[in-house]
């Protein structure tokens, strides 16, 4: 119902302008908004913790994740419950669950970040080329994107892995190949509207080359989108990786991965629930943290995109 009319919009924008003058840096704004948003703060802290744990897994993990401890199994050969020696208990092979969880974080993050990075790269290139070139190039690229997009992602991954065989590299490739389409579409629509902005027209009118226009006037405006979709993409990739490992076609054994741990754990749920609960909670919290962080980034980046114009 209410919109600020033109004349006074300037006044209100003016308020923002003085703010922008005082702190032009995104970092400062991010810290400031985190201070007011405990949920986002927790998410970001959790992600940081996860990164630290994954990076320094060998130093943090209490045990070797692959070592089968003789005292890791009870007299009847059942997993040991959480206790002083094994904080989160052991699994059916007598391995330390906490250590496996920590090494599993490595796999999840590695797959999530690399797959998303790859997907973003493909998506940005395809989306930018399609949006900027338009015409037949756009039609062809978008038909390809639509085709890939119309595959059910998980089935698609299963099929591809079935062909390529399970390995961490293949998991990354397969996830990237499925996920780039989302970014391609979003980037394309952004490029389409950027292309109509007057500052792009002004550069064209000056006689600046297309490649330079894309590099200088189009790509820098895509960063907020890439960061937001990248964060959400990591969550999705981690989930897909877990699903693939759960199905036994993800990260190959005996390497620890959350999906594989959940898969194994469900068989012992009656007798050793920690086998399912520990990786399950880790997965849920991780995906939740990335999604919440993504939401927060969306809110944070949006005004940044508007700061110059309206």
């Amino acid at each position: 119902m209410i919109s600020i009319p033109e004349s006074e919009a300037a006044a209100v924008v003016g308020v923002g302008e003085t703010a922008a003058l005082a702190e032009p840096r995104l970092w400062r704004r991010a810290l400031r908004s985190l201070a007011h948003d405990p949920v986002a703060l927790l998410s970001v802290l959790f992600i940081l913790l996860l990164v630290v744990v994954a990076l320094f897994a060998p130093w943090i993990a209490p045990h070797n994740p692959l070592e089968q401890f003789p005292n890791g199994l009870s007299d009847v050969g059942a997993p040991v419950a959480p206790g002083a020696r094994f904080w989160l208990g052991t699994d059916q092979a007598g391995r330390d669950v906490l250590s496996r969880l920590i090494y599993g974080a490595r796999v999840s993050l590695l797959v999530g970040v690399v797959a998303t990075g790859l997907a973003s790269a493909i998506g940005v290139v395809v989306g930018t080329v399609a949006g900027y070139a338009g015409g037949i190039v756009d039609s062809v690229l978008m038909r390809v994107t639509d085709t890939v997009l119309s595959f059910p992602i998980l089935l698609f991954c299963i099929a591809l892995i079935a062909v390529t065989g399970p390995s961490t590299r293949n998991v990354v490739l397969v996830i990237a190949f499925a996920y780039w389409t989302y970014l391609a579409r979003v980037v394309r629509s952004q490029v389409l509207s950027l292309k109509e902005r007057e500052f792009v027209n002004a550069a064209r009118t000056l006689g600046v080359r297309h490649a330079t226009i894309v590099r200088r006037h189009v790509l820098p405006h895509l960063w907020p989108t890439i960061i937001v979709y990248g964060t959400l993409g990591i969550a999705t990739s981690i989930l897909i990786e877990a699903s693939l490992s759960f199905l036994g076609i993800g990260v190959p054994l005996p390497q620890a991965s959350w999906g594989e741990m959940i898969s194994e754990g469900q068989q012992y749920f009656q007798t050793a629930p920690w086998l399912l609960v520990a990786p399950g909670v880790a997965l849920i919290l991780t995906v939740l943290a990335f999604n919440l962080a993504g939401d927060w980034l969306t809110d944070l980046m949006d005004p940044a995109e508007r700061e110059g114009g309206r």
Partner: peptide, 12 residues
């Protein structure tokens, strides 16, 4: 008034 003079804010 010109932009920023406060005329529309007054109306609101």
């Amino acid at each position: 008034g010109e932009s920023g003079s406060g005329k529309s804010v007054t109306a609101r």
